[in-house]
Amino acid sequence: MPNGESLTSVRPVEAGRTDRAPQRRPLPPGGASRRRRGGRRRERLAPYILLAPAVLIIVLLRLWPLVLGVNFSFTGDGDRDGTVVGLDNYRELFADPLFRGALRNVGLLVLLLPVAVAIPGLLATFIYLRVPGHRLYRSAYFFPAVLSPVIVGAIFNLLLAFDGPLNAVLGGVGIGPTDWLGDPDVAMFVVVGVHVWATFGMGLVVFLAGFATLDASLLDAARVDGASLPQTIRHVIVPSLSRTIQFVFVTTMIGMLTSMFGLLYVMTSGGPEGSTYLPEYYIWIQQGQMNRPALASAASTVLFLVMLVVGLLQISLLRRAVREV
């Protein structure tokens, strides 16, 4: 740690410090004890030195850009680069049908959120209750969660192509072909479906970790009382796992808002007719393709606000749950 070294040699240790080690006193003043005392100071600074790289990286590359971005969203693009334009970017943003479509799709995701949480929740419940074969399911269900969205998207491009295998199978049983990724009324549902297929394993693992903390005697009691499976889920499992459920809600929502880029990029590129835009894809297009960084910053700020609302909602839900207990 060169930093610590230079600090101690420049600044002497302050007086009046109590030494804990008594055998230190007889040491002659000068070199050795100086280094020792310098070492003590270094020890006290140690936590800060250990944290310095982390703080530096997080402040410079995470928190500072956040401030910069909000600032940036009030300035202009192109000819007006660097000049303050007030709310112009936001006005343009909300007038842009593509961005409005992206926000509508966010609304759709919010509506589908309970389904995306219920699927891993129910499956984890069945696995916990030892459905026949319960040892095998987790490995299978969790598998797509480790694959890159790019790989998942590429595989489904192949499966869902108009002349691809899925339509061939459906054709075999007499169902006409659907243009899964080319029909604006269908494409967004397909992409969200693929996202859920790829990520429900994450939620499942989190739920199973939650079940590990569940008091099994409650379940036995419910069984002795003759509770049916739906009754057990509603009155025993859901209340006991309320924290886990909320955690999965929030992480699933954040996942939907921030990790579908790869799928959109590979599967639809925002099309057909802009029907599969999400804010993150819009930001990418404006920044990378249209050279409109200030407009992209405004979209980023809106996305950040949406995520903040999700976070605050989580906190208020948690508080209410704690009060109920």
């Binding site: 954040i254 920044q287 992209a296």
Partner: peptide, 20 residues
């Protein structure tokens, strides 16, 4: 402070980060 950074996903900071 470290946890707070979790709430700023990459999409939110990507434009200024690219500039930095």
């Amino acid at each position: 402070g470290c946890l707070a950074a979790l709430f700023a996903p990459f999409q939110v900071i990507m434009v200024p980060l690219a500039r930095i």
